[in-house]
Design a protein around this nucleic acid. Structure first.
Length: 701
DNA sequence: GTTCTTCTCCTTTTT
DNA sequence: GGAGAAGAAC
């Protein structure tokens, strides 16, 4: 322990050893936040303040939870199974299963995924005659989630607000949606937190027991908590105030998910007697990058304020480079070529990341990388458990586990196609309601009574037989093997095999992977709980590949080199975000920019295009206002590369058609024609292009 | 009634 | 260039 403490700087040490009251650790990017959290965890135990199982630690991602768990275990010397370290949702689920009946659920309740939620909302909205055009299901679901993020059960939604959403229909839908979820013995993500708060609010004894049981509470990424999470935390530490929140208001980027930056800004008022420790020594980046990022974020109002300083003051590092490109295609080509150059200079691809504002931006880069055989990976795109084939297979698994899982049944009723379409489903629903059965039981009843005719009757009959057979196999063959047999029997594998495309190959591969993973779990139930709460299948093998991801996905990561494309008004800051959220949203966009810049250890390159192709048309784009907000002394403009020896003074006539030239970015090529300030060159690597003559020099040989 | 095809709309970020 | 809804064909 002494050794671990000795590795801390004075501020970090203060953050670890202040354990007698509420503490807010303002941890700037790259200041050793995780080290503080894990050391504090261990210190609480070593100092006798709490036993390991008396410390409750909340994180936002499963990855962060895992990392913390591993590092704490290492500090404590050996794996600790009983640690309460997890995401808000995972911990809520764990606690709720023990107290399910108090919130109207059974302990084996299902946790819905977004697909399920949306399908349910769509059905309910249709039942209630809500026009999907004026009130799209996605929007309604988002509104319901926002209520849940604020810990508002239907009866708690303020009347004025209830009336304002789709003429009050949105609110009615919320009430029925909640009823239906309880009927299905299911909870969605928001419910986990909402129910937790309700449980603690309405049951003082239970609350008191939990307060005694968890002597210390740690919260990571406090700036990302929503109101419901905040209320939960507050209830938990009411009375003793032994809470430590770690966060960075400048990295609060999840308001659209209900995160409330005010939670962190208000900390001192919320938790009387609290102290604040600032971690400002940055161990990641050079001075130039830190100064550029600091200068940018200084434009925000909603801050507690802190200044990042390089831990090594002698390390100025490279300035942030800003490059203007003609259009989005050229941007992608430029970035790809730049990365090829870096690679040739010995940079590792795994240490290069391209961070974009919106997911679709990755496509242009992917195309370039594919064409050039430049290895890349898209981080966080469609996650494993969100793929259609995985969802389908999981629906079969859920049905095996819980016959009454109507949502799973609906999903696979006609997958693969067995002639049971919308009208069949309606008939089943009607029968289910009338006889108070689950859909599957209703199907069984109607089949037995020969009320389902033709293709549908036959198809459903076979499905029921296959399911029965599989269920009988379950105990003997285990979950993985049984699911494999079931998917084979119902013809689900064949569905993809018949396609014969490369994509279908991939899907089959994913299914095999799924079955392998199921095999690693003790039971089907255990596996399904894991799937509901863990969205990624994380085998982040260190591969020599460029990473492509959104700025949101990049939070918490770091790379030697970071490329930030698309810094144009409308794109970044994102126009839609500004429309919805105004000034507050602008500040959040700025925080995103700050997060992006501070991911870089050694080098950051920002690009913007003068013309951007949006869906089908080309639009002129203004450089992002964030570019103007970067302090000029830490920024360098123009393409990188070897110093321009007299370039720019070379005039166009110097380039005779047919002569060989070298371009700073695109490499060598042959001149086709020269124009005023521009040259057409057939480049060896990327083909013909018109480029600025400033960037071209003649090759003497 | 079911499935296939065309059309139109939009595309921010995700535990 | 993708998804969902509406219309057309089986």
């Amino acid at each position: 322990m002494a050794e671990a403490l000795g590795r801390l700087n004075p501020e970090q040490r203060m953050a670890v050893e202040t354990i007698d009251g509420p503490l807010l650790v303002l941890a700037g990017a790259g200041t050793g936040k995780t080290r503080v959290l894990t050391t504090r965890f261990a210190y609480l135990i070593a100092s006798g303040a709490a036993r390991a199982e008396e410390i409750l630690a909340f994180t936002f991602t499963n990855k962060a939870a895992r990392e913390m768990r591993e590092r704490v275990a290492a500090l404590l010397g050996g794996p600790v199974e009983t640690l309460w370290i997890g995401t808000f949702h995972a911990i809520a689920a764990r606690l709720l299963r023990r107290h399910a009946e108090a919130v109207g659920l059974r302990p084996d309740f299902t946790i819905l995924d977004t697909d399920d939620q949306l399908r349910l909302i769509r059905t309910l909205a249709a039942e209630q005659g809500i026009d999907p055009k004026s009130a799209p299901p996605r929007f309604l679901l988002a509104q319901i989630q926002r209520w849940k993020d604020r810990a508002l059960a239907p009866e708690a939604v303020p009347a004025a607000e209830a009336a304002s959403v789709a003429d009050g229909k949105g609110f009615d839908l919320y009430a029925t949606y909640q009823e239906r979820l309880r009927g299905l013995n299911a909870a969605d993500f928001g419910d986990l937190i909402l129910y937790m708060v309700e449980l603690l609010r309405h049951d003082p004894d239970r609350l008191a027991r939990l307060q005694r049981r968890f002597r210390h509470v740690l919260v990571d990424e406090y700036q990302d908590t929503n109101v419901a999470q905040y209320l939960w935390i507050r209830l938990l530490v009411e009375g003793h105030g032994r809470i430590c929140c770690v966060g960075d208001e400048d990295q609060s980027i999840y308001s659209w998910r209900g995160a409330e930056i005010d939670n962190i800004l208000r900390f001192e008022r919320d938790f009387p007697g609290s102290r604040i420790v600032r971690l400002e020594r940055n161990y990641r980046s050079g001075e130039a990058i830190l100064a550029a990022a600091s200068g940018l974020i200084a434009h925000n109002e909603a801050r507690l304020g802190k200044t990042l300083r390089p831990a090594d003051p002698a390390r100025a590092g490279e300035k942030v480079r800003v490059v203007a490109l003609e259009d989005s295609d050229e941007e992608a080509r430029f970035v790809a070529t730049m990365i090829e150059t870096w690679r040739a200079e010995g940079e590792r691809l795994a240490e290069i990341a391209i961070l974009v504002r919106a997911g679709f931006q990755t496509r242009a880069f992917e195309e370039q990388f594919l064409a050039r055989n430049l290895p890349y990976r898209v981080v966080g795109g469609l996650r494993f458990y969100e793929r259609a084939e995985i969802r389908d297979a999981l629906a079969y698994a859920r049905l095996l586990f819980h016959e009454e899982d109507d949502l799973a049944f609906e999903r696979i009723l006609n997958v693969p196609k067995r002639g049971a379409g919308e009208s069949t489903l309606q008939a089943l629903r009607a029968a289910a309601v009338e006889r108070n059965l689950s859909l599957l039981e209703a199907a069984r009843a109607l089949c037995a009574e020969r009320k389902l005719r033709g293709k549908a009757g036959e198809g459903i009959g076979r499905l029921l037989d296959d399911l029965d057979r599989a269920r009988r196999l379950l105990a003997e063959r285990g979950a993985a093997k049984t699911l494999e047999i079931l998917l084979e029997d119902v013809g689900y594998f064949d569905l993809w095999r018949r396609e014969g495309t490369l994509e279908a190959e991939g899907r089959l591969e994913n299914l095999r992977e799924l079955i392998r993973v199921i095999g690693e779990f003790g039971s089907l139930g255990e596996f399904l709980e894991h799937v509901a709460l863990v969205t990624e299948l994380d085998e982040t093998v260190e591969e020599e590949k460029v990473s492509l991801m959104t700025l949101h996905a990049a939070k918490g990561l770091e790379f030697d080199i970071v490329v930030l494309p698309g810094w144009e008004e409308g794109m970044f800051p994102n126009a839609r975000a500004l429309e919805e959220g105004g000034e507050r949203a602008l500040e959040e966009e700025r925080r995103l920019a700050y997060v992006g810049l501070t991911r870089a250890r050694r080098r950051a390159v920002i690009t913007h295009a003068r013309y951007r192709r949006m869906f089908n048309q080309v639009q002129a784009a203004m450089p992002s206002r964030f570019l103007d907000e970067l302090p000029a002394e830490w920024v360098e403009t123009g393409a990188p590369g070897p110093k321009r020896r007299g370039l720019g003074r070379v005039t166009a006539p110097a380039f005779a058609a047919g002569s060989r030239v070298m371009h700073e970015i695109f490499g060598e090529g042959t001149v086709l024609a020269a124009h005023e300030g521009r040259v057409d060159v057939a480049f060896d690597r990327i083909g013909p292009r018109r480029v600025l003559s400033d960037y071209v020099r003649p090759l003497s040989d």
